[in-house]
Design a protein around this nucleic acid. Sequence first.
RNA 1: AACCGUUUCUUUGCGC
Length: 388
Amino acid sequence: YRVCLHTFGALCIEGKLGAAWRLRENMMLNGIVANLLCHNHLLSGLCRYGYLDTALHIFSSMVNAHIRPNRATCNILVHAFCQKGFLEDAWTLLRKITNEDRDQVPSNIISSTIMMDGYFKNGDVIGAANLWSGISQQNTRIDAIAYNVLIHGLLLNGHPSLARGSFCGMLKAGILPDTVTYNTLLGGLCKEGKFDEACKLFAVMSLEGISPDEISYKVLIQGLAIHRDLTTATKIIGHILTEPLLHDPRIWNYLIDCYGKCGDVKTAMALKDDMLRFGVEPNVFTYNALIYTQVKRQNLASACNLLREMQINGIEPDVVTYNMLIGCACDLNFIAHALDFLNEMIRKGCEPDIITYTELIRGLCLRRDLASAQGLLAKVLLKSRLPI
RNA sequence: AACCGUUUCUUUGCGC
């Protein structure tokens, strides 16, 4: 029995919902009653992967099975509603389960935090602020997460000074900021381009005994990249040799893309070799970012060289790769080449998408072959069954 | 008691 429940929970957390579902049916057949904890695991798994409707269905079946939802059940569903932007539904559900009055601030800090986050992410700062003042007037203890949500929400909606004020409020209230708090503030500073202050905050973190995690570095690197200070961003990479982040190709890909878009193709290419040196394998994203630098210069030949190189290294081009190549061929008025690429991708089982066809139609229009362009458009519309 | 809330995430056309 215990094993069953435990396994069930684990499957839900891992997102193996199909397996969890079968186990559930098996359990029911064998008369093993899934308890509340089980249901909560299932609901949170379903919600995490976007199956809110199914979750609601299960939820109503719980009532029939005389399993009383608890606060966690409620919060899981409220959270899912908020994520979809259905704040009203979230409130309704919350009040239904908890029997709390309308216009009353939830008595539970997690529920309140979820709702406040929902307001902020929907851009409703007033709604969030009202809720916050309600929370502050309660006797419930406000925890670090609630403050983190507040700070992040204010930053997200363009109120950095209010966010800083809330951080001070947090300190005054004796709540210790954690890594998430600092990362949130770092992100805000980076967005504003205040890198000196960001560095100071880094120092404060270490003074307080809170060590930066990989998100801290990612925030900093991406912030620098957005503000075109790629040199510093690349230097930071050198400082995090021991971090797991270094082995994440995405951060490398991101930098390669940034360098490429800044026009520094050389460094972009060199970074690909650097990542290899650090034992990080370039992937299709890496090559696509590099190919982009070439197609932007209408250098189809070297784009094709990169294509060959990636294939030699066992990386198969994807729809993005082909779209770029097709676009480049079209720019150069090499419509035959473009169609070759189209055939090649189809042959390889790579499904063309709306961008593929847009590029081709653009290419045909460029050479004033409007008849073919219209013909292709008609084909696409037919294929996608879109109304004309 | 356990289960629930917060920070960052890579590549292509056009439009906004």
